[in-house]
Design a protein around this nucleic acid. Structure first.
Lengths: 212, 212
DNA sequence: TTCAGGTCTTGACATCGGTAAGATAATACC
DNA sequence: GGTATTATCTTACCGATGTCAAGACCTGAA
């Protein structure tokens, strides 16, 4: 529309930044990796972007809004990583599902603070809920797609696709959370420990807890 | 030893509080319920306890240490709630397990911010990790006990008890997280929605995702 | 060329976590 | 019983944060 979209990002010398919004989001992600979510500060993000702290408020209503923007971009990254895992693993539907589960947990372990941020309670705020939900739903779609292929091959234990999806998501999300911030923390410090936990969790998920 | 254990709590008039440590923990839990974890402030907790903010530092190294103390008491509460669920439900081992799973998720939904606090990343700090881990392990023990009864009845799908425990915990924890702070948030706003989600998740967990 | 808009800055405010120095009360010791 | 030691609590600070208000600056449209 009326937005000329500005030269992307590299306009740092001038008064007007060019694409400050995107620059702030990127700086926030860097800061997130370096300092963790607890110490993520709007002011520092602005400083690292070479801009005054108040400048950010022309692009984001408040800190939560910046956090939400970061969450949205990270969700879409997770989505594409999962989509790729789905596409690459073509042995059979179950192998694909397994690969998806591994990918989700590994993404969380590789980007712990971004993962925490995506599920930060502050994002349940009305002003940002909608956009974050939309981003989350896109990720969900990949999972549903994978499961429906499993279903087509007649390997799903239930005809309730949604039930299966909830079970899978809860499993991988729970495992990631427990490994990052819960009682599985210590076990997840070694590569071997991580792999063992993921394998156990995923096999248990696919097989179920009870026999018959 | 030399500690006469002070008259419990109701000594608010005097200069020395009596049992300020416990009082601060309780005030923190109240504040948690009212304002949420994001706005939990050591200073406000101290104010609500009728004491200066610096007084807290004679009982807790820092805010993280207070948070850890709250986490420990909440873990032990969760443990006793689960133990009770295990004891009360005596139909059979599977019913007990089911009841335990429901109890965990319901506890999280009833005490959202305490639940979040129990799994707050700041508790992975070296100075408090050990005590929090110990509290978490006690909860784990209840789960293991329930599962080993299931195993004795020959109904466990695997002979790997720990694998089953990880699967169960990841499932209930993941579901709770997704309902509180994730894409299942909206679905969890109604009582009917909550029950449907829990039922789906638990049944999926017990049955498994794949057939055969 | 002017001016209206968005963009950025400086400066202020309340609040936070944390520390230091000192006042006060409770206990241990003689 | 009286004194000294120790634990507890207070007041006063520090640097940092999120947010807002006022104004300076730049850019594009009239």
């Amino acid at each position: 529309m009326s937005r000329p979209e500005a030269k992307p990002s590299e306009k740092s010398g001038s008064y007007h930044h060019g694409d400050l919004r995107r620059a702030l989001i990127n700086a926030a992600r860097v800061s997130l990796k370096e300092k963790g979510i607890d110490k993520l500060s709007l002011r520092e993000v602005a400083r690292n972007t070479g801009v005054s702290h108040a400048a950010a408020y022309h692009h984001f209503r408040d800190k939560t809004s910046l956090v939400a923007a970061v969450a949205v971009t990270t969700f879409s990254e997770l989505e594409s990583v999962m989509q790729r895992a789905f596409d690459e693993q073509a042995v059979d539907a179950v192998a694909r599902l397994r690969s998806l589960a591994h990918t989700y947990v590994e993404f969380a372990l590789e980007h712990p603070d971004e993962f925490r941020l995506m599920f930060s309670p502050q994002l349940r705020d009305d002003t940002v809920l909608t956009e974050v939900e939309k981003a989350g739903r896109a990720t969900y779609v990949v999972l549903i797609a994978a499961l429906s292929v499993v279903q087509e091959e007649g390997r799903l234990a239930t005809d309730n696709l949604e039930r299966a999806a909830i079970t899978v998501w809860a499993q991988v999300h729970g495992l990631a959370s427990l490994m990052l911030d819960g009682p599985l923390y210590r076990n997840a410090q070694s590569e071997a420990g991580r792999e063992a936990l993921i394998a156990a969790s995923v096999e248990g998920l696919l097989t179920g807890v009870l026999n018959e």
